[in-house]
């Protein structure tokens, strides 16, 4: 895909068993690409509570849990689900083309 309106995030095979891959693309703060039951999401990688990288956390029941304080977010919506997180994180639509994932360029 060479459309300049989209930026390549990663290959699906790049995503480790944890289901989370930290990706940086121009124009965005660091992202966490998440795989949940065969669907793919891109969310802000930095926890809205502390300066922690969510991609080092865990996925459980469609939620991502921060490794630092243990707070959580629903991956599909970015809404906080577990304290101490109370502020939503950004989520972005992901486009899949064959084995690669893309995000709209800013």
């Amino acid at each position: 895909m060479s459309d300049s309106k989209f930026l390549r995030l990663c290959c699906i095979s790049d995503i480790p068993d944890s289901g989370i891959l930290r990706v940086t693309v121009p124009g965005y703060d660091p992202l966490a690409v998440c795989q949940v039951d065969g669907a793919f999401f891109a969310i802000a990688d930095t926890c809205s509570h502390g300066m922690a990288s969510l991609s080092e956390g865990d996925i459980e029941d469609g939620q991502i849990f921060c490794p630092f304080h243990g707070g959580g977010f629903e991956i599909a919506t970015g809404n906080p689900t577990e304290r101490p997180c109370t502020i939503p994180i950004a989520t972005y639509p992901v486009k899949r083309v064959e084995d690669a994932l893309f995000i709209a360029s800013k």
């Binding site: 849990f65 921060c66 490794p67 243990g70």
Partner: peptide, 12 residues
């Protein structure tokens, strides 16, 4: 009780 050192992910 439990005291978690850099183990926030174990809390829930």
């Amino acid at each position: 009780g439990a005291v978690l050192f850099n183990s926030g992910r174990r809390r829930r």
